[in-house]
Each structure stands twice: as structure tokens, then as C-alpha cells.
Amino acid sequence: MAGLAETGSNPDVDLLYDINGLAKDAPRWFDRVVEVVGEYGLLAAMVLVVLCCWWGVRRRGGDDAAVSVAALVWAPLAAGIAVLVNIPIRGFVERPRPFLDHQGLEVLVSGKTDYSFVSDHATITMAMGVGLFVANRKFGLVGIGLALVEGFCRVYMGVHYPTDVVGGFALGTAVALLLSPPAMALLTPVTRAVEGSSWGRVLIRARGAGSEGAGSKASGAVVPGARGAETEERDLAA
């Protein structure tokens, strides 16, 4: 499968030239910004979004704080697992970088010698974005938006085909969603144990944070059994 879409004109290559062609017409300073943002900036921004979400979960507290933190821990773990899964995929497909097979590309990052399919950057950011969406819909949408920008940047920079990016999005999403149930089953007891310890409680909830389910209301996540318990309490009160 080496040399996937290496020769001939096809939509993948055409879109590559269309997007990368924007770099030729853009000012040099703008290309430099895209280079830094696409290589490092969006990855750092994704980590910052996860930390901001964790900070909000801590401040809200709630009975499900440990569950929310476990979901946040899963987001970067999903990204790491997805990258590991990508290693044999790259070795099997063996697709060269687009600038090795196509002339006239504006390559903003030099020194890329590994295979192109699938994009690690697209895989990491989408896995984190989808994993974050499982924990918190608002922050998750921000993360997914950052992943989409990352994918555009990789093609703009001339280091990936559009299908490399799409493949990375699919891989990151699949790992984050399919492995989420077993991951949560393993991580939630750990975060609950940390919450119950004197040294680790601060990692789960801030001092004075509420403990009556505020976390689930603020995050938009549905905690199984919570609504039924509230209804039962109202019935008893009546």
C-alpha cells in the first residue's frame, strides 16, 4: 500500500494544492504564525482547555466530581493510546509525505521524514476533543473546534494530505469513544480513592465546593440515577 495517492490527479491531491496554495499568497508572517500554531500552539491550547475544564469541575464540586475528573483524565490518555495505535497503521500504509511526491508545494516545516498517513497531530487533538466532550459538552465543542483547525493547518503547511487528517480524526474519535466505557470503569474508582484521601482531595474538588450534584448540572452530563433519586425525594415529601 506504499505510495497511496502518490501519482495522478485526484480530489485528495487537488484539495491539497488548493489549501496549501493559500500559503503562497499569504504574507510570510502569517505563514510563520500558522507554522507555530499548527506544530505546537494548538496542542498546547488543547491541554489548556482540559486544565480549564478540570479547574471548573473542582470549583463546582458535586457528588459526581470524581466521575468528571476521571473523564478528563481519559481525554489525554485517549490521545496517547490513539498515537500508539497509529504506529502500526503508518507502518502498514507507508504513505510518503506529500512534498516528496508532488512538486510546487509550499512546505512550512522541514525535516519531516516519517510517513504521512495518518496525521499524529489530527489524531491527538481529535481524541482529546472527543474525550473532553464526553466529560463536558461545552469544553468538548471547543476542543473539537481546535482539532478541526489543527487539521486545516497540517494541510496548509504542506506536510499532510487531507485524507491523512480525516484518517486522524476518525482514529482519534474511534479510540476516545469505543474505549471510553472500560476506561471510565477503571479510572472512576481511582479518582474516587484519590478524592477520599487527605492528600488528593484537592485534585478532585476545591475547598468549599458544593457536594449536591452541582457538577452534573453545570457540565451538562447526565448522572445515572440522579433524576430518579430527586423524583423519589419529592414523592416522599408529598
Rank of each mutant, 00 (worst) to 15 (best):
G225F: 08
V194H: 08
V34D: 00
A214E: 14
G61F: 06
M46K: 06
P88I: 11
S119T: 00
G56M: 13
Y161Q: 05
I144F: 01
M46G: 12
L148H: 01
D12I: 15
R90H: 01
A66K: 01
E39H: 13
L77C: 14
L84W: 06
L84Y: 07
L146W: 00
S9D: 14
V155W: 04
K112Y: 11
D101I: 13
R137Y: 04
H102Q: 06
T123F: 05
G151K: 07
G145A: 09
V67F: 10
V134H: 06
G208T: 04
V85S: 05
Y115H: 13
T231A: 15
V37Q: 09
R59P: 01
G168P: 04
D101T: 15
S68N: 10
R95V: 02
A66G: 07
L171H: 00
L179P: 03
G129H: 03
H102N: 14
G21W: 12
L186M: 12
T191N: 05
Y40A: 08
L16P: 04
Y17N: 11
M1S: 15
N86A: 13
S119D: 00
G41K: 03
P162D: 06
S219T: 10
R207Q: 13
A237V: 14
V130C: 02
L43C: 02
R205E: 10
G225A: 05
R207E: 13
W29R: 04
A237P: 01
V107E: 00
H102S: 03
A65E: 05
E150C: 12
L43E: 08
S216V: 13
G8D: 04
V175R: 05
G62C: 06
G143F: 06
Q103G: 09
S216N: 12
R234C: 04
D18H: 12
V134D: 02
R32N: 15
R59L: 07
W29F: 12
P27I: 06
S180Y: 15
I87N: 10
D14P: 08
T173K: 02
D120N: 14
G129M: 09
S197I: 13
R59K: 15
T173E: 00
G3Y: 12
E150W: 00
A183E: 01
L16K: 07
N136V: 15
A71G: 15
L22P: 05
A65L: 09
E150P: 00
F99E: 03
G131W: 03
M157N: 02
F139T: 05
V149Y: 03
A5Q: 05
S119Y: 00
V130F: 01
G168W: 07
P224M: 08
V202N: 07
V222L: 12
T123H: 02
V130Y: 00
I89A: 06
F139L: 08
G61D: 01
Y40N: 10
S219H: 02
G145W: 08
K138H: 07
T7D: 07
E106R: 12
T125C: 12
